[in-house]
């Protein structure tokens, strides 16, 4: 009876169009097209020009050729890579470690979880200011060093150190987010796997490598992709803490886009950089789709 009604209803339904759907998505779609979709192609177009908000001149691939001879741009790429290579694995390891520490129920669990997640609800500007005070020339860290009789360190002013200070700030900011993602991943691992392993006499370390890590693979992959994408876009920390300095030791791709576009008014050149950034993110996303699909199969 139910089957009959279901089949008799279905073909009728699939024919029925509801064009009012266009109206429902229209406002969202219009804003999206204007402020996101068209700008993607506009950036590509601008990257082929010299544009300073007044005059525009078509220069072909000149900007891209220029980029690869631009020391500062290459340095910004190198810094972005260095930053990513540090923040990505460390952020994941710290996130997983925190998640495992608070995985089981115990008194004070909600408190610790809140503490580690807290940086996520503090704005980047405020976080950066708090850390600038710690890292400053006369900041807390140097004061503590002085009481121990160690000479001061240029946490933000020494070209060989400043990028590590930015990495520390970023780890402080993102670890709590990674922790929550890993936590929900850990909680979805069926407990009978651990019980079975315990009966077989597996040590905690063995069950970590043979159960936890393989079972966490989808979460790990998601965290990896998300942190990868956000690391390549790092801007705020750099802008606030060092302004890209000293001597461009901390300038990043996104920071160079900002500097060139809105300080030097070199819109075309900055657009060429934007295209490079877009391509990098696109590449990461495509890799994500490839492996993401594999996991489903």
């Amino acid at each position: 009876m139910t089957a009959v009604t279901a089949t008799s209803k279905k073909p009728k339904k699939s024919l029925e169009r509801q064009p009012i759907g266009y109206l429902f998505i229209a406002p969202n779609f219009f804003i999206y097209i204007t402020f996101v979709f068209i700008p993607i192609f506009w950036t590509m177009g601008l990257s082929l020009t010299n544009y300073d908000l007044n005059t525009m001149e078509f220069v072909g691939l000149q900007n891209f050729i220029g980029l690869f001879g631009d020391r500062i741009f290459l340095k910004s790429l190198w810094n972005t890579m260095r930053y990513t290579v540090m923040v990505l694995p460390l952020g994941m390891v710290i996130g997983l470690m925190l998640a495992m520490l608070i995985q089981k129920k115990f008194i004070g669990r909600a408190f610790f979880r809140a503490v580690f997640y807290l940086p996520q609800v503090i704005s980047l500007v405020a976080s950066s200011l708090a850390w600038m005070y710690l890292f400053g020339e006369n900041g807390i860290l140097n004061m503590l060093l002085r009481t121990m009789g160690v000479s001061r360190v240029g946490w933000l002013t020494d070209p060989s150190i400043s990028i590590f200070s930015i990495v520390v700030l970023s780890l402080w900011m993102i670890s709590g987010y990674n922790m929550l993602l890993f936590l929900s991943g850990l909680q979805s691992i069926p407990s009978h796997l651990y019980e079975a392993a315990a009966i077989d006499g597996a040590t905690p370390i063995q069950s970590f490598f043979n159960i936890t890590l393989p079972q966490l693979a989808p979460t790990t992959f998601f965290v990896f992709v998300m942190s990868c994408i956000s690391s390549f876009q790092v801007f705020g920390q750099v802008y606030m803490m060092t302004g890209g300095g000293p001597d461009n030791a901390t300038t990043t791709l996104a920071h160079q886009i900002y500097i060139n576009a809105f300080q030097y008014n070199k819109m075309g050149y900055a657009s060429a950089m934007s295209v490079i950034l877009l391509l990098i993110i696109l590449l990461i996303t495509l890799v994500n789709f490839r492996y993401g699909n594999k996991e489903v199969d």
Binding site: V36, I38, P39, I229, S274, T285
Partner: peptide
């Protein structure tokens, strides 16, 4: 997947 900085100029 569009990084905000990459479309800021057209915006």
């Amino acid at each position: 997947m569009v990084p905000p900085q990459s479309i800021i100029i057209p915006q």
